[in-house]
């Protein structure tokens, strides 16, 4: 019953705004980053095939490759063989690193209710009785009796009852991997790297 009352105290809270607003802000920011990233890839990693054609092709970057080869005698040659190979510029850019990696919204609310009570009771009773001739049956003597009695009681009860509830909402938004399309493009680029002998 007490728990239910505490839970009712959360019903008026704008949980949607408290938790949803920062999450939405983060998603909006992520969307803006993704958009600027896409724009960056199109503008800087691709070029137009021609002025008349809207088609794009990747900008290629030439690397020099040197490797030692085995001679007829089975030893490595002293002068390494030089070759050129080209890779798309976009494979050099760590595209996936631009995103809000983790968002943690920690919302804590503590509601405590306590009740204290004190009850004091006291009673006092007095009785007086007088009797003459306590026993007529014997009639041996005559007694005059007088009884005084006092009965008193005093009590004190005190108690403390408390109950509490703690609500914690924790959201974690993680980074998504590269889209399959992007991975496929990068994979095709990587697999098609063919070294060519240097022109000179």
């Amino acid at each position: 019953m007490a728990t239910k009352n505490i839970a009712n105290q959360f019903s008026g809270l704008p949980m949607k705004a408290l938790i949803g607003a920062p999450l939405k802000a983060a998603t909006d920011a992520n969307a803006m980053i993704a958009q600027s990233q896409t724009q960056f890839i199109i503008n800087n990693c691709f070029e137009k095939i021609s002025e008349d054609d809207e088609s794009l092709r990747p900008i290629m970057i030439t690397f020099q490759m040197e490797r030692q080869v085995l001679t007829a005698q089975g030893a490595y040659s002293k002068s390494p063989v030089k070759m050129d190979f080209s890779i798309p510029l976009m494979t050099l850019i760590p595209i996936n690193s631009l995103a809000i990696e983790t968002l943690k919204i920690s919302f804590q609310m503590e509601v405590k209710s306590s009740r204290e009570f004190t009850r004091e009771t006291s009673s006092e009773r007095q009785q007086r009785s007088n009797a003459k001739g306590i026993s007529n049956n014997y009639k041996a003597h005559e007694f005059d009796t007088e009884l005084h009695g006092t009965l008193s009681s005093k009590g004190k009860d005190s108690g403390n009852a408390s109950s509490g509830a703690n609500y914690e909402v924790s959201l974690t938004a993680g980074q998504l991997p590269l889209p399959k399309g992007m991975t496929a493009i990068l994979d095709i680029f990587t697999k098609n790297m063919v070294p060519l002998p240097t022109k000179d």
């Binding site: 900008i59 970057i61 030439t62 690397f63 020099q64 490759m65 040197e66 490797r67 030692q68 490595y76 390494p80 050129d84 190979f85 510029l89 050099l92």
Partner: peptide, 14 residues
């Protein structure tokens, strides 16, 4: 035993 390096002509672009 392969080593690669960026061509000097491409440095500015990269």
């Amino acid at each position: 035993r392969t080593a690669i390096s960026l061509s000097l002509s491409e440095s500015e672009k990269v």
